[in-house]
């Protein structure tokens, strides 16, 4: 079981959920979700790292929701403040994320969070892959880099790489 990738185990989990729902007389989404949770409990015991990855993904969804709500309240405050004090700027964020999936999730999460928009992916002078992020109210560029790398990128990598890079 451990030689299977976490992604294949996830497909097996979905299959178990469908099976569980199909065995019930009344077909409903809630039944499928219960089946998924039961399958998850079983598979997380059998496969090392799968449980942590799925819990990390669920935790990331909650983290993203919280970040979106908090920063949309912040942007609403900027919109409604009597005198606009915008401080726009584009920051280059060096990427630890490598694969297309990781970069796509990171860029989408940043754009979903009000106040930051990812504009482009490119390479800096040293050949390091960077993500260009536009900020509505920027403050210090290094603070922006640190926040995005620690809050968003670290959590995504924990899910996609199974905690290999902390």
């Amino acid at each position: 079981m451990n030689e299977m990738s976490a992604r294949n185990v996830f497909y097996m989990n979905l299959l178990l959920a469908v099976l569980w729902a199909a065995l019930h007389a009344d077909l409903s989404v809630t039944t499928a979700i219960i089946g998924f949770v039961l399958g998850f409990l079983l598979l997380s015991v059998m496969h090392r790292g799968y449980g942590a990855a799925v819990l990390g993904a669920v935790g990331y969804i909650f983290f993203l929701g919280q970040a979106i709500i908090l920063s949309s309240i912040q942007v609403a405050r900027y919109v409604l403040s009597p005198k606009l004090r915008l401080d726009q700027g584009i920051v280059a964020i060096p990427l630890t994320a490598r694969t297309d999936l990781e970069i796509a999730i990171l860029a989408s999460s940043i754009t979903l969070t009000p106040g930051t928009i990812s504009v482009d992916v490119g390479r800096d002078a040293a050949g390091q892959r960077v993500l260009y992020v536009h900020n509505l109210v920027m403050g210090d560029a290094d603070d922006v880099r640190k926040t995005i790398k620690q809050d968003f990128e670290r959590r995504i990598l924990r899910v996609t790489r199974g905690g290999a890079t902390a």
Partner: peptide, 22 residues
Amino acid sequence: VGIVRFPDVFARMHAAGMATTV
């Protein structure tokens, strides 16, 4: 309100994106 008040396209994009998602 943000789309009307903000001064340029970049800032307005933030307001519009917030309205469509949140």
